[in-house]
Nucleic acid binder design. Structure first.
Lengths: 338, 338
DNA sequence: GTGAAAGCGCTAACAC
DNA sequence: GTGTTAGCGCTTTCAC
């Protein structure tokens, strides 16, 4: 913990009052530049800086924001955090990080620890669990603005930065059809929430447009556990024998590749594959993986920019606004015609 | 920011004293369970929780630690952070995250913002830049313990969790030799610091043991910029024509794969490749990538456990101690004999 | 331009 | 088991 030297001791050491010393550390204080110089010099010498908690107690501002994400598994979140951290630091803010492991309960626990002044704002990608997000009201009642990115809740009225997932899914599915697929399976972690739902809509739209049947058996709703994913996908492929798979998250595509290997199915010959992913080495996989690549870094930047707009009063809080950032469609070997 | 309701108002609203209310929020306080119940209920109703800055000011404890890492690029750091966050949360701690972009200057800036009580401890993987780490003394003089993981500084006396890199490098290089390689290049981001240095020693040891010449031209010291990496590696391969490459960090291996593709060199036939990496899909690459896989998640856990040992007084601070966690050697297609 | 003094909201002796 | 009280270290009027 902090040095045991305080503003009072510094003052004593210099024969000044603590108010004068305090002034040396604030901008625009009416203090003699020379005095200020002397104080700062001595402070540096003693390794002193004003106690954060004492200042914040007075100032009622934390200069800290929180990121809450469901997992740390993939490049998408790494990139997003990178963007968030950058903008935050450029604004003199600190960043707390929390992982929910896709649990709404943990999410609620975390939120509860944030409303005591710990943070000035929150950036979150929803856990995707549950439909009761009452706990987020706590943020509002404590005037802590919230901005979503990627995974948002429809029952919460706030800004949200996400990809143009509906269209991307539609295009991706259309592409699979164009490559000859007729029995396309859709894999989601949660079909009923946010990204799982919207991405499925694009998938359905493309099927309907191509007059292909919508088969519930082909729409898999699996869990966040890799082993369960593997089993579910294996079952799906064995029982339904799809000729293509559209995975709404990267992890499900990876499991699919492993299952295909085990079942000795060749991609793309026996099974075509495309997925949402920010993997930067998709082209190095065997076969190269077709992906819908979301602008993760940009999402992080935009979400944080929005948050600061609210924090600085340039924008009102609590307004539902969805900002779509375009994803990139990269069609490669895994979804090619033969 | 925090609600304007305070412990005093809550007390007034309930006809109790503020100390009683305060007690309701601390564990193990000698308070009537019923009274506590009533207080917590009212608090929930009013959306009140004790002001963090006031508590921390009193307690002189922030229940927050900082993670400082050089980059966010790869799975290694994601996994490590995951482990850190887990242990921290289990101990009721919050985690601040900072990225230095491999800059010692940024690292120093960050450290300076941490010594005012903001954090109780720091977990860091060094930027790898510079040899003057005086700024870390600030932590010590403010009694903020520091634990390194992966990339540490030799001039700083503190606990450090790292891989058994010397032996792993030695084994990896030996393996390349066993696979028929005779002209093995070593790629590092910084040959003179920490991991770059130690991993090179293992490489050299294996070469010497096999009576292969140590050729400085084959030991590349490149930058943290991907484009520069690419150019440097391309030059190296074109000019030196190595028959194998040992990359001390993942990114350099990825650049190598791309360069090989451009130069139409086949891996492993024309060029064998092995690298340090935590990629979980190394087996899916074409060819499957041989890796030295560090226990990133476990490193995060161990580093944080060490930090809490120090914070809780179970262990003294400022003791140089290096804890080695074994990496896994996964030899696959990219380094096979033919 | 500097100092004295009153608190920010909470905690922890210490009384009762 | 609860209340009283004295600060934690800093900021900020208000005097001078």
């Amino acid at each position: 913990m902090a040095n045991n030297i305080t503003i009072v001791k510094l003052a004593a050491a210099l024969g000044l009052s603590k108010s004068t010393v305090s002034r040396a550390f604030r901008e625009g204080s009416d203090i003699n530049p020379k005095t200020k110089e002397i104080i700062l010099q001595k402070a540096a010498e003693l390794g002193f800086s004003p106690n954060l908690y004492a200042s914040n107690l007075r100032g009622n501002k934390s200069y800290t924001i929180a990121i809450i994400i469901p997992e740390f598994g993939n490049k998408f979140f790494s990139q997003a955090i990178k963007g968030i951290e950058l903008v935050a630091r450029n604004n003199g803010y600190h960043v707390l990080i929390y992982v929910t492991d896709h649990s709404a309960e943990k999410e609620a626990d975390i939120i509860r620890t944030l409303v005591n002044g710990r943070v000035d704002g929150v950036i979150m990608s929803g856990s995707g669990e549950g439909d009761n997000h009452e706990y987020l009201k706590l943020l509002k009642s404590n005037k802590v603005p919230l901005v979503f990115f990627d995974r948002y809740y429809e029952d919460v009225s706030t800004a949200c930065i996400t990809g143009n997932d509906l269209d991307s899914s539609y295009q991706a599915t259309k592409h699979l059809i164009a490559s000859g697929a007729r029995k396309i399976a859709y894999l989601a972690v949660n079909k009923d929430v946010s990204i799982g739902k919207i991405r499925m809509e694009g998938y359905k739209k493309a099927l309907q447009e191509a007059a292909l049947p919508l088969n519930e058996q082909l729409m898999l709703d699996t869990s966040n556990d890799v082993l369960v994913n593997y089993k579910d996908i294996k079952n799906l492929i064995e029982n339904q024998k799809p000729d293509a798979i559209f995975a709404s998250v990267e992890r499900l595509a990876m499991s699919t590749i492993r299952v295909a290997k085990e079942l000795q199915l060749l991609i793309p010959k026996d099974l075509k594959l495309i997925c949402f992913s920010c993997l930067d080495i998709a082209d190095m996989l065997q076969p190269s993986l077709s992906v819908v690549k979301q602008p993760a870094y940009e999402m992080g930047i935009e979400a944080t920019t929005q948050l600061f707009d609210i924090l600085c009063g340039r924008k009102a809080d609590g307004i539902r606004e969805i900002i779509f950032l375009d994803s990139e469609l990269i069609f490669q070997g895994s979804s090619s015609r033969a």
